[in-house]
Amino acid sequence: SDYEVNVNGIHHRFHNISEELIKFIEEALRRGEDLREIIKKVRELLG
């Protein structure tokens, strides 16, 4: 049904976003950045 496609589409989009965010955060932590600064950047990215 349309509803299922829609829900799956939304889930898929969020899954991709969270994968990208996790990579972004892991790389920043590897560079020794402060978690609070990383979260601030993530918030800015998400608008």
Rank of each mutant, 00 (worst) to 15 (best):
Y3C: 02
L46I: 13
S1M: 14
F24V: 08
F14C: 00
E20S: 11
G9R: 01
D34I: 07
R31S: 08
F24D: 04
E4C: 06
E44C: 12
G32N: 11
I17Q: 01
R36K: 10
R13G: 09
E20H: 08
K23M: 11
N6Q: 08
G32D: 10
R36C: 08
L29F: 10
N6V: 12
F24H: 07
N8K: 06
V42M: 06
K41T: 08
E19A: 09
H11N: 11
E44S: 11
D34V: 07
D34N: 07
I38S: 01
N6T: 11
G9W: 00
D2K: 01
E37H: 13
E20K: 08
K41A: 12
L21D: 04
E4K: 02
N16I: 02
E4I: 07
V7Q: 14
I17F: 02
S1F: 14
K23F: 13
S1G: 08
V42N: 02
E4H: 07
R13Q: 13
N16Y: 06
N6W: 05
I25C: 02
L46F: 08
I17E: 01
V7Y: 05
N8Q: 07
E33P: 04
E27M: 15
K41E: 06
E26N: 12
I22N: 01
K41D: 06
S18W: 02
L29Y: 06
S18C: 02
E37R: 11
H15W: 05
K40R: 14
F14I: 01
N16M: 08
E33C: 07
I17D: 00
E20P: 08
G9L: 02
H12N: 02
H11I: 14
L35S: 04
L45E: 05
E37A: 13
S1N: 09
R31W: 07
L45M: 10
R30F: 14
I17P: 03
N8E: 06
D2A: 04
F14H: 00
I25T: 01
E4P: 02
A28Q: 15
H12V: 13
K40Q: 10
I39D: 03
K40F: 15
I38F: 04
K23W: 11
I25W: 01
L46N: 10
S1Q: 12
F14W: 15
R31L: 11
L35R: 02
I10R: 09
A28F: 14
V5H: 01
E26A: 12
K23I: 10
I25N: 00
D34H: 09
I22K: 07
G47E: 11
E4R: 01
A28E: 13
I10D: 10
E33V: 13
G47K: 09
E4Q: 05
H12G: 03
S1W: 13
K23Y: 13
H15T: 12
I25M: 03
N6S: 09
Y3N: 01
E27N: 13
S18Y: 03
D34A: 11
K23G: 07
R13D: 10
V7H: 08
E4V: 08
S1T: 14
R43E: 13
K40T: 13
K23L: 11
E26T: 14
R13C: 05
V42W: 05
R43Y: 15
I22Y: 05
L46K: 12
N8V: 01
L29S: 03
K40V: 13
A28L: 14
E26Q: 14
L45I: 10
G32L: 05
L45C: 03
E19M: 08
V42Q: 01
F14L: 01
G9D: 05
L21K: 04
L29P: 00
N6D: 08
Y3H: 03
E33A: 10
L21A: 10
R13Y: 14
R31G: 06
N6H: 08
L46E: 08
R31P: 01
Y3V: 02
F14T: 00
R43P: 04
E44Q: 13
H12M: 06
E33L: 15
D2T: 04
R30L: 10
L29A: 05
V7W: 08
E20F: 14
L45S: 07
S18K: 06
I17N: 00
A28T: 06
F14R: 00
A28Y: 14
S18F: 03
E37Y: 15
N6G: 02
E26C: 07
I38Y: 03
G32A: 11
R36M: 12
E44H: 11
E20Y: 14
L35E: 03
V42D: 00
D34Y: 12
A28I: 05
E37M: 12
R36F: 12
H15A: 08
K23A: 11
D34W: 13
F14G: 00
E44L: 13
L21I: 09
I25V: 07
I25A: 02
K23D: 08
E19C: 04
K23E: 12
L46S: 12
E26D: 12
R13T: 14
R30K: 09
G9M: 02
E19Y: 14
R13L: 15
E37K: 07
V7G: 04
V5W: 02
I39E: 04
